[in-house]
């Protein structure tokens, strides 16, 4: 069994850098979420699986309209401009890809990253435990970063 300690601060730093660089411009607006977590009516989940000696999954969770706002920010679209589903999936998925990619670089041994996927629910990952739960606030909206670790290293390789 391969275990890796996933450090809370490092994942927070990754999320902040992603948002600072690509979403908000040079200054970041990502803060720790304070208080109770609200229920999300219309949740959207994006994830990438990591394969190698250490296996797991990086997951992003937010409300659909937050993901739309995120997409608009990424693509430089004006407020309120309708976002096509394909653009939403691609953009939110790419954020998951970049977060996952930077997470992968923290691991002691190089691994590979699966393709980003989007859905309204997170499919279960066999034998995985949630190693990290990071509820954040982006422009006042809930944005969660979770990291799941499988308790046994998997030999299945995803797309590289």
């Amino acid at each position: 069994m391969t275990t890796t300690t996933v450090v809370h601060d490092q994942v927070h730093a990754i999320a902040q850098e992603v948002f600072a660089a690509m979403v908000d411009g040079d200054l970041g607006l990502l803060l720790p979420w304070e208080g109770e977590l609200p229920a999300l009516d219309d949740a959207l989940v994006a994830w990438v699986d990591l394969f190698g000696e250490w296996s797991g999954r990086a997951v992003l969770l937010t409300a659909t309209d937050t993901a739309q706002e995120l997409t608009r920010a990424l693509l430089g679209l004006p407020d309120g401009e309708p976002v096509e589903r394909a653009d939403l999936d691609d953009a939110f998925g790419e954020i998951a890809n970049v977060v996952g990619g930077n997470l992968k670089a923290l691991l002691p041994h190089p691994g590979t990253l699966g393709l980003p996927q989007i859905g309204s629910d997170l499919p279960p990952l066999e034998g995985a435990v949630r190693a990290l739960h990071l509820p954040l606030s982006w422009r006042g909206r809930l944005f969660v970063v979770d990291v799941w670790v499988t308790t046994a290293g998997t030999t299945t390789e995803g797309a590289s």
Partner: peptide, 11 residues
């Protein structure tokens, strides 16, 4: 392979 990333880099 990400259209989003292509658009960000291109712009």
């Amino acid at each position: 392979d990400s259209r989003t990333m292509r658009r960000i880099v291109s712009s």
